[in-house]
Amino acid sequence: MQEFKPKIVAFYCSNCASSAASISNKLNLFLPENIKLINVPCTGRIEILHLLKAFENGADMVYVVGCQEDSCQYINGILKLKNRVAYLKNMLEQMGIEPQRLEVFSLYAGKGQDFVNVANEMLTKAKELGPIY
């Protein structure tokens, strides 16, 4: 049997999470393979459709890393996104898709290690859940 290599899509904010990402780079920390990173100006711009399209096109896991709730440059982008994620998780469950396949994380700008940690967390979860289809 072929080994399951999960396809993971990660959206990340160009402010806090992006800086965490670059620090992780400097620290020579590497993300697991098969993670497709998509940089967005603010997580508040990510719509339900963007997340759904990732699943529709074969992602096993989708997650978003954004700012702390009180430090969004656009005031409340991450909060808006969190509301949408909660809504979509409920929808996924009704669709027969495990809601754990979708997550959102708030990171501090300086925490490069955390950026790698959430990626590994999603990878572990993906392996537990198995392929989406």
């Binding site: 339900i48 759904l52 399209k53 699943f55 929808m91 669709m95 027969g96 898709i97 989406i132 289809y133």
Partner: peptide, 13 residues
């Protein structure tokens, strides 16, 4: 678009 995508995912599942 959202509903269409959701239907595709659920049916594919």
């Amino acid at each position: 678009a959202i509903l269409a995508s959701a239907i595709r995912i659920a049916k594919k599942k």
